[in-house]
Amino acid sequence: MILNTDGNITIITQETATPIQLVQKIEASYAKIKNDNIIVNLSSLNKVTLDNIIEFLQLSNTHRKSKHSFIIVSDKINLDETPDEIVVVPTLKEAYDIVEMEEMERDLGF
């Protein structure tokens, strides 16, 4: 797991761990990143399944309740199959755009 910080955004890049292992690693280091918007980049994986995405659901819900963005980046999943409760986008650029839009919504009180 590689952590890169860009302002108030932490980008977590998948190396070799499985999604389950990645979720466990994120939960273990969550105290360090809990006040940031989080982007989980799964672009390096050859195959991403719906079950892989669902592994992040509880972590995403917890983080979003604390008024921060949690976004997964993967172009290997059918976005129509993903649950509405979790944000999945195909590119890192789109993830940054979502963070920006969600911050504006929070600033406006939505």
Rank of each mutant, 00 (worst) to 15 (best):
M1D: 06
L3A: 12
N4P: 08
N4D: 14
T5K: 15
G7P: 05
N8C: 08
N8F: 06
I9P: 03
I9A: 03
I11L: 07
A17K: 12
A17T: 15
T18M: 11
I20M: 13
K25C: 08
I26C: 04
E27A: 07
A28K: 12
K32L: 12
I33Y: 10
I33W: 11
N35L: 13
L42A: 01
S43R: 05
S44K: 08
T49D: 07
L50Q: 14
L50T: 15
L50E: 13
D51I: 14
N52Q: 10
N52M: 07
I54V: 12
I54H: 05
E55V: 09
E55W: 04
L57G: 06
Q58D: 12
Q58C: 10
S60D: 04
N61S: 12
N61Y: 13
T62R: 11
K67N: 11
H68Y: 07
H68S: 09
S69I: 01
F70G: 01
F70N: 02
I72Q: 00
V73S: 00
N78V: 10
D80M: 15
D80C: 15
E81M: 11
E81N: 14
T82P: 05
D84Y: 12
I86Q: 02
V87D: 08
T91M: 06
E94C: 07
E94A: 07
D97V: 11
V99I: 09
E100A: 14
E103I: 07
M104P: 08
E105N: 10
D107C: 08
L108I: 03
L108N: 05
L108Y: 04
G109N: 03
